[in-house]
Design a protein around this nucleic acid. Structure first.
Lengths: 155, 155
DNA sequence: GTACTATGTTAGATATGGCTAACAACATGA
DNA sequence: TCATGTTGTTAGCCATATCTAACATAGTAC
C-alpha cells in the first residue's frame, strides 16, 4: 500500500501530549467519571489555573482528537482520549500506591511525585517497574521478615 | 534580626533551577571534572543545542551564583553550583544503577528515564527510594532465590 | 422577558527554552 | 600583523504555558 503525501492515516498520526496536556486530560477523565462530562470551570478549580489556560488546553486536546469539545459545550472524552487518560492514571496509581504503602511517604508527597513521574516514565520502564512493585508488595504482605526489615529501614 | 526589604541574604535566596537549567549544570560539572573548566561549545555539543541556547542558560546560572562566568571566560562552578550538581548526579546514578542492574533496562532507556527523574523527584522520596534500592540490591546479590525470582519476573 | 450571575472566550502580556542568522572577539599561522 | 577560522554573543523568531482583563453567552430568578 502506498501512502500518499498528506494522506490522513491512523495511529501514527497521534500527537504526543506534553505533561501539562496530559494533566488536563487526566483531570477531564476524573470529572467525566464523576459527572459524565466536564466543565471548564471545574478543571480550572481542580488544577488551580485560570479558565483561559484551560480554554487553550481544551482546544489543543480537541484538535488532537482526545476530547469532544466545541465552544460552550460539555466536555467528554473520545476513545483516544479515554485510552490515553487510563494509561496516565494507571501510572499514577502504580507509583502512588508504592510510595504510600511501601515507602510510607505522606499522601501529599506521594501524589506530588507520582503526578510528575506519570508524564515522563517510558512505557518499558513502567512495564518493568510495575512488575517489580507488585513482586515487592506481595513479599511485603506475605513475608513478615521482609516486611520488618523494610519498615525498619524506612522508618 | 530584622530582614529589611531588598536585603541580600544567604541560602534562602537560592533560586530553584528548572530541569533544563539543572541539565546545563550537570553537563558543566562533567566537563569541569574532565578538563578543569567548561567551554560553551562543549556544552552545546553534549546537549545537542545551539550555542545561543547555552549562552542564555549560562547567564541564568551565573546570575543565580551557580557558575563563574563572564563573557568569553572559561566556565567553572561555584561552591553552590558544585553542591547542586553533585546532588543531581547522585540522583541520576542511583536511578540509573537500579534501572540497569536490577530492572535490566538498556543503557539508553535507563539513562533517558534517570535523566528525567533526577529533576523532579523530591528529596524525601529520593532519600527513601535510595535506601530501598540499596536494600533490594543487597538482597539481589546475596539471596540467589530472590535474584532468580526477580530475573524470571523481568525477563 | 429582562437583568443578573455563571460560565466560557478572546486579546494581550509574561516567562522559559528552544531556534537561526548575523555579528564580535580571540587565537593562530604565515 | 593581519587574514582566517573557531568560539562566543546578540537580536529576533517560534512554541508552550501561564496570567489578567475585558468581553460574550447561557441560565435563572424575579
Amino acid at each position: 500500500m502506498v501512502v500518499e503525501a498528506g494522506m490522513t492515516s491512523s495511529i501514527e498520526d497521534t500527537v504526543t501530549l506534553t505533561p501539562s496536556q496530559e494533566n488536563y486530560l487526566k483531570t477531564i477523565y476524573i470529572k467525566v467519571s464523576q459527572d459524565g462530562y466536564a466543565k471548564m470551570s471545574d478543571i480550572a478549580n481542580m488544577l488551580s489555573v485560570q479558565k483561559s489556560s484551560v480554554n487553550t488546553a481544551l482546544n489543543i486536546l480537541a484538535r488532537g482528537g482526545y476530547i469532544n469539545y466545541t465552544p460552550y459545550s460539555q466536555i467528554t472524552l473520545t476513545e483516544l482520549g479515554l485510552d490515553a487518560a487510563k494509561r496516565i492514571i494507571e501510572k499514577f496509581k502504580t507509583m502512588d500506591n508504592f510510595f504510600c504503602n511501601i515507602l510510607k511517604l505522606s499522601k501529599e508527597e506521594a501524589a506530588t511525585n507520582s503526578c510528575r513521574i506519570e508524564h515522563i516514565i517510558s512505557e518499558e520502564l513502567f512495564r518493568k517497574i510495575s512488575k517489580f512493585f507488585e513482586f515487592t508488595e506481595e513479599l511485603y504482605l506475605n513475608d513478615p521478615d521482609y516486611k520488618k526489615k523494610l519498615d525498619d529501614l524506612l522508618s
